[in-house]
């Protein structure tokens, strides 16, 4: 038995399932860091100004019916005609806007456990606590559904506030827009938390014509100089320590 297979089996056992299944993002560097791709049957978290944009790309890759659960008080909402413009299929979205976080979470448990959805987008106005996130993870773990928690914070670009939070999600991504023109959008991806490896940075580009993701630059941890990079430096330091 090769080491890789053994690793896979350990991961599957950790998650309480017989077999690990992943959604490759199609970019070798990122998929390697995640040991193959985003785990299905798991909850992932997205923060930052472009969280919704990146989550929408993952939804497109996953396909199937997407449940979009959001707190009705959140003013920013996915705009279906633009989803079509970004290459997604708005007709596959089923939305459920609820006033109350408790209702939202009970809906989320129901949807995550139902094995009917490809992705479940859960938009919350403030980060979930560890117990809430853990419950979501338990609900989803027997399925091939991808749980995506979006906690988009348009007012901040820093990741500092995220560092203290140790949710029960498998990964946490901080996504922001670096540059934008009519042909492409450049995103800064910071994988702030990664159960399958170490935190990483990438700069990726979305081609507006094809809606494909390309790697623009790898800023892996070895090339990163914490003194120069305020962005995520603290996390990296703590990782090395």
């Amino acid at each position: 038995m090769s080491l890789d297979t053994l690793k896979e089996q350990i991961i599957a056992l950790e998650m309480g399932r017989s077999e690990r299944r992943v959604l490759p993002l199609g970019l070798l560097a990122i998929d390697d860091a995640l040991q193959g791709g985003l785990d299905l049957g798991a909850v992932h978290e997205f923060t930052g100004t472009a969280a919704a944009l990146f989550a929408q790309l993952i939804v497109q890759r996953r396909g199937g019916t997407t449940f979009w659960l959001a707190n009705a008080r959140i003013n920013e909402q996915y705009y279906p005609p633009a989803l079509a413009q970004y290459g997604a299929k708005p007709e596959d979205f089923i939305s459920l806007f609820l006033q109350n976080t408790q209702d939202l979470l009970s809906a989320a448990y129901e949807v995550l456990a139902a094995k009917a959805a490809g992705c479940v987008l859960i938009e919350v106005s403030r980060p979930l606590n560890q117990i809430q996130a853990r419950k979501l993870q338990i609900a989803v773990q027997d399925t091939n559904t991808l749980g995506l928690i979006i906690n988009a914070d348009y007012a901040r670009n820093s990741v500092q506030a995220d560092e203290g939070l140790l949710g029960s999600t498998l990964t946490r991504w901080h996504v922001s827009v670096l540059d934008w023109n009519s042909k492409r959008t450049q995103l800064k991806l910071y994988l702030a938390k990664n159960r399958r490896g170490s935190p990483r940075h990438w700069i990726v580009e979305i081609d507006h014509a094809t809606h494909h993701l390309h790697l623009a630059a790898i800023s892996g941890e070895r090339t990163l100089n914490p003194a120069q990079q305020g962005f995520g430096a603290q996390a990296l330091r703590s990782h090395h320590a």
Partner: peptide, 15 residues
């Protein structure tokens, strides 16, 4: 879905 003429925002503000 008919793609609108101009670029539309991924997220629209309710208000």
């Amino acid at each position: 879905w008919i793609t609108p003429f101009g670029k539309r925002p991924l997220r629209l503000l309710k208000k």
